[in-house]
Design a binder for these strands. Sequence first.
DNA 1: GAGGGGATTCTTTTT
DNA 2: GAATCCCCTC
Length: 689
Amino acid sequence: MDTKNLSISSENKIKEKQVFERISRCIDAKKSMVFDAGAGSGKTYSLVQSLKYIINHYGKILKKHNQKILCITYTNVAVFEIKDRLGNTGLIEVSTIHDCVWGIIEPYQKQLVEIHCDKLQHEIDTIEEALESEKWAEKYRYLSEDEKNAFLTIMNKKKEDYFKHKNDKSAPFKASLPEILNTYPKLMSNVGNFKKTVDSLFKIIKYKKVIKKIEGKESKFNKVKYDARFNNDKLESMRISHDTLLEYTEKLVEQSDLLKQIICDRYPFVLVDEYQDTDSKVINTLSVIDEFSKMIQHDFFVGYYGDVKQNIYDTGVGSDFYNIHKGLERIIKTFNRRSAKEVIFIANKIRNDDVKQKSIYENFPKGSVSFYNMNIERQEFIKAHIKKWNITKKNKLHCFELTNELVAQQSGFTTIYNFFKNSRWYKLGRNFEFLREHVLSLDVKKLGIVQKLLFRILNFKFKINQNETMVSDVVVEKATKDINILKLRELVEKFRKIKGETLKDYIENLFSKYHNEDEKYDKCLEYIIGEEIKSYSDVEDFILNQLYFFNEQEEHSDEYIQESKNAVTSFLETNMNEFNLWHDFIIDRSESDTIYHTYHGTKGREFDNVIIFMTSKFGRDNKYFSRLLKVLAVKDEVAERNTKTEEARNLLYVAVTRSIINLSILYLDDIDDAKAQVEHVFGEIKYDI
DNA sequence: GAGGGGATTCTTTTT
DNA sequence: GAATCCCCTC
């Protein structure tokens, strides 16, 4: 929407100024505070304003004392945005919590290794306790001490076989360990429990060894490393991941007064963006430092910027926040700079707390909010709205779905998504967790290996067929640096002529001109596809090896081999159009007038026209939203604390508040006895369009 | 028909 | 890795 003609009354201007004056008073008095900024109130603006205020008033002193302002954000994207809005300044350190914290604690290796040792011991204790009490270890407990020892000896010998067949189905797995099956048949009666037990036993041994190595001061075991690339600790290799980094930081700060002092002296001002998403361990750490600074009478200020009601990830502190960092000054901003008053009105009703927003503008255009309860095809519903709201490529419609699978479906590349979802690698263990990122990440670097290959091909095809692109942009520089412009044009034309109904066709046609006395063509193709791939069937093999035959130790049945080949072939035979839609999605440049998002993915963004598709079920929870709708208008904060209802409410609040002008919600399940509650918030429910 | 075991199936997001 | 469905056995 065009915001140029919007006007703010002088009264509201003064009021908004007063809100910021409260912040600046807190900064001046070094009184830590929380700034609660509801959706669309201009939170990031206030954060940047605060940073500028600190620089203007305390910049000189900070510089003199070699101190800095620390600004902690939740994501790297937010780091860029704030840096961008702030301009260049050496006084502020903007970084994600993990980068920042590791920078501070990394030098304290002696203490870190001690903490690491404690963690290892704690893990051992936990596993041993589980073996003593958990049901899955029951059969193991029935063994005598001698039997336990003998069993462990055999398992140690058969370690290789065990891991080789661990992914097999039950029967072949049992057959792969005949010694165990014969000697301890009961232990193996349930394969799942057996594996869990064996893994636990192995883990104990591993951890005990590491503790010895640490105590023996072996090299490689005198240092803890943080590696942001992995989501899991590897304690035995002295490597920790995100959560454990915060855990160690909390411990280190709690036990060292010196470190507390160093931090508050180095960073007298700490500003936390999106505090509600920040881990509770971080809030606690800051709270401890804040208290300590008061004790030693050093200046220290923490400012939290965010909104508890927009906490939609269970990893964030959410409303626990107020119990952890106590004694904060609370500043609430109730102006809304984003939405029509119709939207603000229902958003206020959904968030059932004391934040009641109103528009800061005098003349915001009229908006609309409707709640529909019908059983209708999504596309039909969308079609009606395209007419109603005059949707065009310039005035886009944004549709919210609960899952990425639905986003993929609606965006038109179901086959692609399902191919990966059903492929062996993503079905194995917990690998499905990578599916979203590998298939749908807008950051190409994060795509899976196969997806990256497909993307390179599609992106090349896309770029080379764009008329306005300079030829030199398209064809890889490395492969073409020493040829003249005429030859370059010729080369581009040659590539442009290549077509294909399916991706298979296209790739085959690409290779039909390969090794055909055009060295530059060959070089380009090799660069795009990878040098080890020399034909269409190499592409197939590459995908097969990545997704189906990735474990070289595994032996595969003929049937499995055939099935896998068929799956890959029919995937590559998918219509090119679908691949183009996937490519459009990845480069975030959809040619369509309708764009799909997950609810979660829209956080921080805003759109003129929004449709929210809602079902009762989300994940395993069949009543995720129906439970909320039943109490939607009930103001019972006590009852709602820490329940799933609160989570659903926050998610709905985030989704609804993305809308600038038009909002329609389509609830696709029976509304049952929630009707009165829903109407209390959204007005009369509509049953047809 | 109860319970055991195997197979299959899961949401969102960031570091 | 945990919930749930399904199949088998007693």
